[in-house]
Design a protein around this nucleic acid. Structure first.
Lengths: 217, 217
DNA sequence: ACGCTCCTGAGTAGAAACCCCTATGCCTGG
DNA sequence: CCAGGCATAGGGGTTTCTACTCAGGAGCGT
């Protein structure tokens, strides 16, 4: 089987896009279905064409590359992402990693690298330019500290926090009630109130939130 | 400033050493002061010549590349190290990282990569082949405590993995069924089977598992 | 004293997930 | 050819969580 891979490229420089396209299409199964020059157009094109892979420049008008990825996640647009950037900025890199971007390539890299990155990502692996190895190795120290506190987390009351901590440990309302000496209904009411305050919906969203933020409870 | 850099290369294949030497010496300031074919000879040469940088193959007779590094550390021989290897083995890679090796390059990489690696390492940075980005990213999770792949994760079938990926995105069985063109009951059955295989129980445990392991799906 | 928030508890309803079964069709290895 | 694994689909029942409503009491500031 030889399914051609639908690729979208986004960069605000037409000449760079052209070079990128030429490079990518040296590989016959890679097909660039669209070029976009700004973030909004990129997002539109992703919704419309459902590409398998997006190669996004960070610096773009309207929406930058990472903002596009955030929108993709919010709108459940499933496509692999490779971020292209000119500079080695640690914050930018960490933000991309937090968004679970699969590829991160410096523009200074050899043209060969972008092809390698595409192949690796489409094979389910990740590809990060070696120039960023330093960031990758020291990431643990950095990314944990500078994460901004979620909006709404500070609006939780003490009882709610107490319960959320136990939710993060995968406890049911009944178990939590037993442990805290409350009625299961009270715990359920707190759950409901937290869902409203945090503006999360769905049966698992509160658990997910609790799990993501358990270090800050 | 133009001090020539003393480099030692170690590999048990003479032809490969020759290619490597030619490649390195395209850069005038790099000077290969010795080639070695096994670990003992390498260690000897390092003591004798005190090179600035050692490019070591992993597979060598007498002492393998990592054993040489261990000896260097034990004998306080200060030289930067770049490990060259043919295969992507996670254990080997982690062992090298634990030894604070500054460069780790796959032989399949472009010849250009080894030069980039040398330049990066001599500039005080690290250089890791992008093919190993996966290892690098999962290393912190691994070193954090839960260590290596869960028992049972490899027992999942392809359909189950496909569904687990969507579970990790907080989708309901109905949404997953719609997206994959299946009956909701089928998806629920897969959920049940996965719970049994993974030996997890409780309404949120599968979501939690999926979320923790989403990078390995 | 009056509002206000918070903690507590409850009724009702529905959605989602889990748990126990059965069953069909497909493919593969012995 | 048959057993077994896998993917598919369903029945019936239970538990858990969410989403609404309501309500009493405690504490707190104006």
């Amino acid at each position: 089987m030889k399914p051609t891979l639908k690729i979208l490229i986004a960069d605000d420089h037409p000449l760079f896009r052209q070079g990128l396209r030429k490079t990518i299409e040296t590989e016959p199964i890679f097909h660039v279905v669209r070029e976009a020059g700004d973030g909004q157009a990129t997002l539109h094109a992703i919704r419309e064409l459902k590409p398998d892979l997006c190669v996004l420049d960070v610096n773009m008008p309207a929406l930058d590359g990472l903002a596009v990825v955030r929108q993709m996640r919010a709108q459940r647009l499933r496509a692999e992402v490779i971020i292209l950037t000119m500079y080695k900025e640690e914050d930018l890199f960490n933000a991309a990693m937090d968004l679970e971007v699969k590829g991160y390539v410096l523009k200074e890299s050899a043209v060969n690298d972008i092809l390698e990155a595409i192949k690796a990502v489409m094979a389910g692996h990740r590809y990060i330019s070696p120039a960023l190895s330093d960031f990758l190795l020291t990431r643990r120290a950095g990314s944990n500290g500078l994460r901004e506190s979620k909006p709404g987390l500070d609006r939780l009351t003490s009882a709610e926090r107490r319960i959320l901590k136990l939710i993060a440990e995968d406890r049911t309302s009944k178990e939590i009630a037993d442990q805290l000496g409350l009625s299961p209904r009270t715990v359920e009411n707190h759950r409901t109130n937290m869902c409203a305050k945090l503006d999360v919906h769905g049966i698992h969203s509160l658990v997910k939130f609790a799990y993501e933020n358990k270090s800050r409870l």
